[in-house]
Design a protein around this nucleic acid. Structure first.
Lengths: 349, 349
DNA sequence: CTGTTAGCGCTTTCAA
DNA sequence: TTGAAAGCGCTAACAG
């Protein structure tokens, strides 16, 4: 069904029909009604491709994310989708399974589709081929969950969030904190690692934490179980993601450890599901949806202003903390000896 | 960057450039290389809108789903996305938050975008405005997770799955089984309910189960807690969704009940996350991804054959069963079937 | 093997 | 307030 048939049906020119849909004020009420009527009976819908081709405005917003499975990205996508919808755009989301090649493909498709902008979360900002691709094509973009001097970013202050979390664990008495890092690690996770050269206070605090890289491909629950059955098992597990924290909860239970009595587990995302489990997962709560929303709005603002966003437009959003039920004092005394009669004592014997 | 500039750069006509991208064999190797080179240096990408407008083939597959938050739909979407990608199409997914109006809007957009097909999961097949909309526009579609005589559907035999699950619970000795049904219930959940008039064996078996509608809007964990604190609490909770089963697990823990010693909880989706929790969630395992994939392939086959899919093309996929750790024998000897007017029902009112 | 050209459906001057 | 017509970038006859 094309605009011609509608024009014919209403006894007007195609230009008038077009105006009815794009600038209704500029056409007489009587003709407008006639056109609308014709359009309705023919169930006419303007052809998007033709419209895009003609106006050079696709009203498409691209979104490149590592995966569709992690609730973190789902929550982020919710914010993105809402902002995109409100702006009258349509969303073209692409999940890349954390594969850099797919990220580049996605960026290429984004450009070819004529998307007016793009928000994205890449596995590795440095190595990303998608970023320069978008940059070269002049597609305005914003990164989510990253902090980088060379790109417009929206995220929390992850270094500070980590410091907050460590401070909380330490104030509870934990001295043997292990931070579990899945491999390959996203650049957003690598940040705030000891020896990153920034030398600021929070990094110093974080360096008191032992970092353990998880073997890629292996079953996380088994790996964590191994760690927990070690005689020198940590008193607190600080996970880079909530999904990993959930694995920790299961691993602990399989070892017969009770959380938080025998072990503290904290996450770093604050996904909604964590609050529906038992024990409720203690975690940094990142404003995932807000991050997505702000990233979209940043890009939209740039489109409206006719210029690409820059690193100077970057936004840092506040994070929260979920107390949860998976976090408590360590089972050991301050002096590092097992409390008498504590199950951990038997385990260490 | 248009095809003209590339043609100019390579010293050929636009037709040749077009051929290089659409039917490379038909152009001499030497010219092809020259064109490709020019395209690369100019970082040319064919304009999708122009291509679609000209060929009348958008290579877009629409997907309408109730939400983005439920892992069930995420898994489904994974299957859809994979099939769509393999076919060289691009996916346009729309989440409707289970709002019929948004479903209709989505269908309208699908049509306007020129999508060649659509897979969808609607809240209510009967009342859906999206279905007739697609039908009228001639966009081939397939329903997922539904069984309906009037539409092409891909799903499991949910009646049989429910019967299998009930049989398993009964063989373990459970006689007080409650099936928790969130409100408003999807048509896919309403199926297999007593009094649905089919009168077959599985329905008869399922009718031994007491159905309890959950209060819409209220906190599920609280509601379930109330049910569990009743003196005549059921011995097994049969949930229509895994997410609800997870709520049951938490509610049970808050009541001091140990699963499965004091209470059996089973889900009806088999989401991956359920296997990562403790206790591992026992559940019917639906092949969500396969359902999505088959729905797409069904539509693709129809597109290739130049005809819309019909109810006769419907597919029934086999379901599985996850033993899990949340399922065991009841805590006390069976004392007969639940009586009408069970107090547990009042607890939820 | 390659070039010329019409036209997909729409918006938008420019004229009336 | 309305219409005529050009052209967005591309593909597919058709001609050579």
């Amino acid at each position: 069904m094309s605009i011609h048939r509608v024009a014919q049906g209403a006894g007007v020119s195609v230009a008038t029909v077009s105006r009815v849909f794009n600038d209704p004020e500029r056409v007489a009420a009587s003709t407008r009604i006639r056109v609308l009527e014709a359009a309705r009976t023919l169930s006419y819908l303007p052809n998007q491709s033709a419209r895009t081709l003609r106006t050079q405005r696709s009203r498409i917003m691209g979104a490149i994310l590592p995966s569709r499975d992690d609730p973190v990205y789902v929550e982020c996508m919710n914010g993105i989708a809402a902002a995109v919808l409100e702006a009258g755009y349509v969303l073209a989301p692409i999940a890349c399974d954390s594969l850099p090649d797919r990220e580049a493909d996605a960026a290429r498709w984004i450009v070819a589709s004529g998307a007016e902008g793009c928000v994205l979360l890449v596995t590795d900002v440095e190595a990303s081929a998608a970023l320069p691709l978008l940059g070269r094509s002049g597609v305005p973009y914003a990164l989510m969950h990253h902090q980088d001097d060379r790109h417009p970013c929206v995220s929390i202050d992850s270094r500070r969030a980590l410091a907050d979390l460590v401070a909380r664990l330490e104030s509870l008495g934990h001295r043997e904190i292990v931070r579990l890092v899945p491999q390959p690690a996203f650049s957003r996770v690598q940040e705030a690692r000891p020896g990153d050269g920034t030398g600021d206070d929070s990094a110093a605090r974080a360096s008191r934490v032992r970092h353990i890289d998880m073997a890629p491909g292996a079953d996380p629950v088994r790996q964590i179980g191994l760690l927990l059955s070690s005689p020198t098992r940590p008193t607190a597990l600080l996970c880079t993601s909530d999904l990993l924290a959930i694995d920790c909860l299961r691993a602990a239970a399989l070892q017969g450890l009770q959380v938080p009595r025998d072990l503290t587990v904290v996450g770093f995302d604050g996904i909604a599901l964590g609050a529906r489990m038992f024990p409720m997962l203690a975690a940094v709560v990142q404003p995932h949806a807000a991050i997505g929303r702000h990233a979209v709005e940043l890009v939209l603002r740039a489109i409206a202003g006719g210029r690409a966003p820059t690193a100077a437009d970057s936004l840092l959003l506040p994070h929260g903390m979920r107390e949860g039920e998976s976090c408590g004092p360590p089972p050991f005394t301050a002096h590092g000896h097992p409390q008498p009669g504590h199950p951990a004592e038997a385990a260490l014997a």
